[in-house]
Design a protein around this nucleic acid. Structure first.
Lengths: 225, 225
DNA sequence: ATTGACATTATCGTATACGATCAAGATTAC
DNA sequence: GTAATCTTGATCGTATACGATAATGTCAAT
């Protein structure tokens, strides 16, 4: 149930979210309302509204009279979210395939082609999301698409950091193509099965990497791979 | 990604949410910040925070400089949410069963027994939710449980209005028992399959009723069944 | 040196005030 | 009579101010 936010609060929300996802604002770091207000040249009111929003979205933790701190995701939270993604994304694809028109498939192909030509990690991550979204859009379940997008955004940076950088795009690319071909063939069962395997493989590899890193809130900054 | 809200805003949030879910605040009705502030004896600031929260949760629509209006769910939204519920709840049950201990099952039985003894529609609805929650809790996926609960709350009143009142509890009770027995038998596939059928049956009946009612935002107030 | 009590400072939560925006009604032009 | 424009009041968005609360520092007692 997503929506737009008020003008003054919106850039603050975005800036803070970007800072958190980039790792510049580290888990546990306090976010001082007065300071943020000063930096953005506004009063605390829109800052509070942005923080409230960020809290609901899971990026910060607010405590009464104690302010906000940055909230990172623990390894188990990341894996939990991936389980949810499997379920939701398979549902979305299953709903979408019977509804796919030629232009839906053309769009997915276009994104896929961009993906094969990208080399930059951030770009690959973005296109990966876009590819998935292109596949699910014909499901026509707006709430479902929004939930998936939220989850993808929430754990996207972690996946980028742990996986995309290290594994490149060859395996995902091959798997994307298989899924896309199954969609074209209107073979819903096969496509959904391939998608499930695709995400579950990512999850397993993610679990392995996180296991080696130890549990607790995962920092996003730095590159220790 | 749920959390507590500030003290002054919290009772306002709850009162408005209750009003919306009860139908007293009808879809399309404006919610005047100044008026709500006066009624609750506070300034507009916590009112705005409550409204922001309600918007994110899907209960109201905020427009810049135009304030909030109550947002009802259309029939298609309700059915979309039920599709999502099928996927998430089946996932939750599948994760939960291998983790169920004797006290988990005892708790589910306890709630089930309460359900069989309840006659009041509101009570049945509450216990229905509690029964499902008891089954899913051992999944240990907090985000998943929260998402399910949000969705249940969001469409709960519609189901209560359309289904519980009209169909009573006999069918759901029988289905609950079957699911519970499959859980006891640690037969995950069977339990998940029964749960899927249970929710999908509800969805289908819901769709049939909504079809007869026509599409558009569904009022919660009144009793036309 | 350590612990507890008190004072001070930083920060939060929100009331009041005020400018901005929108909707509705009144007035004017055709 | 109808449409366009202007005026006014309602409401929103947020700045400033201030009391409440928590954290930190200081001082005294052991």
């Amino acid at each position: 149930m997503q929506t737009e936010i008020r003008s003054a609060a919106e850039p603050i929300y975005q800036a803070l979210k970007t800072g958190i996802l980039s790792g510049e604002l580290a888990p546990g770091q306090p976010l001082r309302q007065d300071e943020i207000a000063r930096l953005h040249g506004v009063s605390k009111i829109p800052v509070r509204e942005a923080l409230l929003r960020l809290e609901i979205d899971g990026y910060v933790l607010l405590r009464k009279n104690r302010g906000a701190t940055v909230r990172g995701l623990s390894a188990s939270e990341i894996l939990n979210i991936m389980d949810i993604r499997v379920a939701l994304e398979c549902l979305a694809l299953g709903l979408a395939i019977p509804q796919m028109g030629p232009s839906d498939l053309a769009e997915a192909h276009r994104v896929f082609k961009q993906y094969t030509q990208a080399t930059d990690v951030a770009r690959l991550s973005t296109l990966n999301l876009k590819f998935h979204q292109a596949l699910y859009a014909p499901s026509d379940n707006a709430e479902l698409l929004r939930m998936i997008l939220d989850l993808q955004h929430r754990i996207g940076p972690y996946i980028q950091r742990e996986m995309t950088r290290a594994t490149g795009h060859v395996r995902p690319q091959d798997e994307h193509l298989e899924i896309l071909l199954a969609c074209e063939a209107q073979d819903t069962d096969r496509a959904v099965s391939l998608l499930r395997r695709h995400i579950e493989t990512t999850k397993r590899e993610m679990a392995a990497r996180l296991r080696r890193r130890g549990f607790g809130a995962i920092p996003l900054q730095g590159d220790t791979i």
